[in-house]
Nucleic acid binder design. Structure first.
Length: 810
RNA sequence: GCCGGUGUGUCGGAAUGGCAGACGAGGAGGACUCAAAAUCCUUUGGUGGCAACACCGUGUGGGUUCAAGUCCCACCACCGGCACCA
């Protein structure tokens, strides 16, 4: 019974994470630590905003948010005001599909999901500024998504086009090229088919050069830059006209290798090419028509790689403009209709695909670049490098291929049978979706005026209530069924007109949301130029690599457009990008609901607390690398926090004097943590803290300044415990108002150093020498320590200052 | 096929060309406990040895170097991206 009191007292002293975290969550809500005094420089640290799904967050989502919060707090303690917002990317298919399943309006389920996810996000303990919160489905937000569309339309960057589109029969939706993976729907993995539909397109291709060249200015992972570069796919070459034999018209081909023009031995057109059917002769007509029809029915998958090449001879010939050679014209589906001109000249000696086709159909092969200075006998594969001297090439003979490759387009242009040309792989952005849960496209179709934009003062065009969200088999949006909404007057001529019923793709809101955060309540502009100039662009953007191409490319495109029309004063929205790795399930497999291996942060927080989870998210592995969750791993960081707590509590009221050793440890801690933080090696920051904790715990006592330094350094990582201990150390103001400590390199210097001594590369002894000892002194001590082993001739003595001695004996 | 990335104990991982395996997890042994949990201490790459110690060891094979996980060459495996773009 007498033990009860002492036990209770003991309880009050041990680390009680939930009490501490609740306490500081409340205090920080009333007194935010990140404030804008108008004088501090800004630092914009952005998280990729989440889609508020019903499943909520798992520990993988947390990782990026923890990294960005640590970085934000560190910057904050270095004197910046941090723009650190959070919002919800809430339009899109999953909410709509969920609505269809449950009969619940997506607005209801979305609001519910946002509520839950916001609760979870708040548990991270991040310094998010909730006054900036936004939701892409809020009319006050999507008004400006629509406004941007109107501007794009007015500048000629939005247009309608009837085109065969990727159609997912299961989702009953048109998919962007970006949403088709291996010929299958990215979302439901059904086989994607083609369907002819009228679509809204955005001319991202007009920005292709700028999107490519802008990458050079960005501090992004090389991998992501490469992916965007490949996606944009710029190439330089020439368009060359080949007259059709016996006719007046010509076939224009695109080639990046006009240097090999003399090596062309046949031509291939895509089956869809406008001239294809007309090139057939009476003898070949049947075969040609059949080939064209078969190709039209083939799915994308069948036309892809791996399959043996097919083709049909049209019976017609083209004339090589350089030497008058007659080249048979073939059709084959290995030539893509929508790239270049849909027709190619074939140089089998110097192109793998042409070589394969020539071998299969027994077509001639003419080598025009000498490999290793000679003509290849019995060629087994194409020589594709532009490296060698030209042969069999008329007056080009003797020229260097590499040089000619650059000059040939201009040569062709001078001769008048073609022109220099650059091409891109990137296509215009299919911007309409035939679904309900998206921003209505602010266009009115008038029988007389055509497509006209909704006047800006009438924005937003509100998404109307609808009986059924079901997508239709015809590919029409569910909005088309609401007559009262569809029928309207033309804003130009006043006649009866109809609203556009397509909605925007999910990418719309995320393409510009980062601009809105800094002026989220503005109802006059999407962002005031003043605030844009003050707080934008984003200095650090943190999120998964899965958005390497689409989201990041679309955002850059819209930012460049908004720059052109003067809304913002910069062309690139995200100066630095960091891709955090995924958190995988316990066995290294991706977390998924169906596998039942999803780890919920809610459970972790209950058992270990926010600070432990934050530390473990960092400790789990290098931040840019995928890491497998280990349930027991979090015990380690939790134990560390308990020891840290005990260390500070046990020493805080003792009057310990710091000796040089303690001062050295303190400055080493500052130096190590700061360096590792700056280089984003966050996992080793945590292990660094553990190491220092272990060495401090071995000392008889720890002085106050070291304790305070320690608490400050740990605060960006484990904010709650740090703030509590800061208060326990007697401070009235927040630890986050404390400046980031600076390491003193003088104080870090050791008096004596341990130097390992190697003989022939193997460590045989370790000697203690004064830090200031000369090379000669160290070597003398070293030789003495290993004298038994220095039996032969000492042929080399190496001393790397402060590091190692190596004595080479023969 | 092309382009990236990765490869280190039982596991996650650490290491400006300078003592490989920090730190954590797990294991083993011990202390405390009637017992368990928690906590604390010791130990923990492999092989041989009672031991001091010796040898081997960072995917494989070569090379450069006094010294290589780290640099160079050739390969292998796994993961990711692109995929007939002329």
């Amino acid at each position: 019974m007498s033990g009860k009191g002492t036990e209770k007292d003991k309880m009050a002293e041990i680390y009680n994470h939930s009490e501490i975290e609740d306490k500081w969550t409340k205090i920080w809500e009333e007194h935010p630590v990140n404030t804008d005094d108008g004088k501090k420089p800004k630092y914009y640290c952005l998280d990729m905003f989440p889609y508020p799904s019903g499943a909520g967050l798992h520990v993988g989502h947390w990782r990026g948010y923890v990294i960005s919060d640590v970085w934000s707090r560190y910057k904050m303690m270095n004197g910046y005001y941090i723009v650190h917002p959070m919002g919800w990317d809430a339009f899109g298919l999953p909410a709509e599909n969920y609505a269809i399943q449950t009969g619940q309006h997506p607005r209801i389920s979305t609001a519910e999901n946002i509520r839950n996810i916001k609760r979870q996000v708040k548990q991270i303990g991040a310094i998010y500024d909730w006054d900036m919160e936004l939701d892409t489905t809020d009319p006050a937000f999507y008004k400006w998504s629509q406004w941007i569309f109107v501007q794009l339309f007015k500048h000629g960057y939005a247009y309608e086009k009837e085109m065969p589109l990727n159609w997912c029969p299961h989702c009953r939706a048109v998919l962007a090229n970006e949403e088709v993976v291996d010929g299958k729907c990215e979302r439901c993995h059904s086989e994607v088919t083609k369907k002819n539909l009228r679509q809204w397109m955005l001319k991202i291709t007009e920005f292709a050069d700028r999107l490519l060249d802008g990458l050079d200015t960005l501090d992004w992972p090389e991998k992501v830059k490469k992916m965007q570069t490949d996606w944009i796919g710029r190439s330089f070459g020439a368009e060359v006209d080949f007259k059709i034999d016996g006719r007046d018209d010509a076939i224009t081909v695109y080639t990046t290798r006009p240097d090999t023009l003399y090596g062309a031995t046949f031509m291939v057109l895509a089956p869809e090419h406008a001239l294809s059917a007309g090139l057939a002769t009476p003898e070949t007509k049947e075969a040609v028509d059949k080939y064209i029809a078969d190709s039209a029915n083939k799915s994308n998958v069948d036309r892809l790689q791996g399959k043996e090449k097919t083709g049909v001879f049209t019976g017609s010939y083209a004339i090589n403009p350089l030497n008058g050679a007659k080249l048979p014209i073939w059709l084959s589906d290995y030539v893509l209709a929508d790239y270049g001109t849909g027709a190619i000249m074939c140089v089998p000696a110097h192109d793998d695909r042409d070589f394969e086709f020539a071998k299969k159909f027994d077509l001639p092969i003419i080598q025009v670049i000498a490999k290793d200075g000679k003509e290849i006998e019995d060629m087994q594969e194409a020589y594709t490098e532009a490296n060698g001297t030209m042969i069999n090439s008329g007056d080009w003979n003797g020229m260097e291929s590499a040089e000619l490759k650059v000059k040939a387009p201009h040569y062709v242009e001078e001769k008048g049978f073609g022109k220099a040309k650059k091409n891109f792989k990137i296509r215009d952005w299919v911007f309409s979706r035939q679904r309900y849960w998206g921003e209505p496209i602010p266009i009115i179709h008038c029988p007389d005026c055509g497509a006209v934009t909704v006047p800006e003062e009438e924005l937003p065009v509100l998404l109307p209530e609808v009986e059924s969200y079901q997508p239709t088999d015809t590919g029409e949006s569910p909005l088309a069924a609401i007559d009262s909404w569809v029928n309207c007057k033309c804003p130009v001529c006043g006649k009866d007109a109809k609203r556009e019923t397509n909605t925007m793709p999910q990418w719309a809101g995320s393409s510009w949301y980062f601009l809105r955060y800094v002026d989220v309540h503005n109802d006059k502009a999407l962002v005031s130029r003043e605030k844009a100039d003050k707080y934008l662009p984003v200095d650090m953007y943190i999120g998964g690599v899965e958005h390497a191409v689409l989201h990041l490319l679309y955002s850059r495109f819209w930012t460049k457009f908004l720059y052109d029309i003067g809304v913002v004063g910069f062309e690139e929205p995200f100066l630095k990008l960091f891709n955090q790795g995924m958190v995988l399930g316990p066995k290294g497999v991706k977390m998924s609901k169906s596998l039942g291996n999803v780890i919920s942060p809610d459970d972790m927080i209950r058992d270990y607390g926010c600070d432990s989870l934050r530390l473990y998210e960092l400790f789990i592995g290098p931040p840019q690398q995928d890491s497998a969750w280990d349930d027991r791993g979090i015990d380690g960081v939790y134990r560390f926090l308990c020891k840290f707590w005990n260390l500070v509590m046990e020493n805080k009221d003792r009057d310990v004097k710091a000796d040089t050793e303690l001062i050295r440890i303190r400055h080493k801690l500052i130096s190590t943590i700061t360096q590792r933080l700056e280089s984003f090696s966050l996992n080793t920051v945590v292990s660094g803290f553990m190491e220092f904790n272990n060495s401090l715990a071995k000392l008889p006592g720890v002085d106050r300044e070291t304790l305070e330094t320690y608490v400050i350094l740990l605060s960006p990582f484990a904010p709650h415990i740090a703030e509590e201990l800061w208060q326990q150390l007697g401070h009235d103001s927040s630890v986050f108002k404390a400046p980031w400590p600076e390491a003193d390199s003088e104080a870090m210097k050791e008096d004596t150093i341990e130097v390992p001594v190697q003989v022939n590369g193997k460590v045989r002894a370790t000697v203690s020498v004064p830090a200031e000892a000369s090379k000669e002194e160290v070597l003398a001590t070293a030789k003495e320590a290993v004298k038994d082993r220095l039996t032969g001739n000492l042929i080399k003595e190496i001393y790397v200052s402060g590091k190692i001695v190596n004595l080479v004996v023969k």
